[in-house]
């Protein structure tokens, strides 16, 4: 993947958030479990929020980025990915979301490693941290709800 400017990178990241939004919207229309449609619609809405933050960054406001260290609970790292299906339950929905954020995080980490431009590297790291923050949100929910007894 080749990027020539910071703007291109941010456009790429914004596109990724929109992809995630569309994916959650699509799943929301398919799931059968009561209440889960709402959960996916909320996830889609969250992605729009992420997109808006990136647009802020693009406009020059770097405060949109996550500040400080973001905790990585590593819950999803050793869990098996799931494919969305109409009968998925809350555990699967969380697993799916955690894995999606994990993949986005890993992508930016790889891009940061691949670039020699220090400015671009910092931007990729910032984006990776953002995705880690999203992953932490789902991992926290998974830890509190699914793994409450473990």
């Amino acid at each position: 993947m080749q990027f020539d400017s910071i703007e291109e990178i941010l456009d790429f990241a914004i596109g990724k958030e929109m992809e995630a939004h569309d994916m959650y919207m699509d799943i929301a229309g398919k799931v059968k479990r009561p209440g889960l449609e709402k959960t996916f619609l909320e996830l889609a809405q969250m992605e729009l929020g992420h997109k808006a933050r990136l647009e802020q960054v693009k406009a020059g406001d770097l405060s949109g980025f996550a500040a400080g260290e973001v905790q990585n609970l590593k819950i999803s790292d050793h869990l098996v990915d799931v494919k969305p299906h109409p009968n998925m339950d809350y555990q699967e929905a969380l697993l799916f979301a955690m894995k999606a954020e994990q993949r986005a995080h890993d992508l930016y980490v790889d891009l940061a490693r691949a670039t020699s431009d220090p400015g671009l590297r910092e931007l990729f790291k910032g984006l990776a941290k953002e995705e880690l923050k999203h992953k932490l949100f789902f991992e926290t929910e998974y830890d509190d709800v699914i793994l409450e007894g473990n």
Partner: peptide
């Protein structure tokens, strides 16, 4: 034995939608 959730698949979907949330 990490925990368990509810299964509302026995209910008519329109009723399940009115009574249960995503977590069951």
């Amino acid at each position: 034995a990490i925990g368990q959730s509810a299964d509302h698949s026995w209910m008519p979907p329109d009723i399940a939608e009115k009574v249960a949330d995503a977590k069951g």
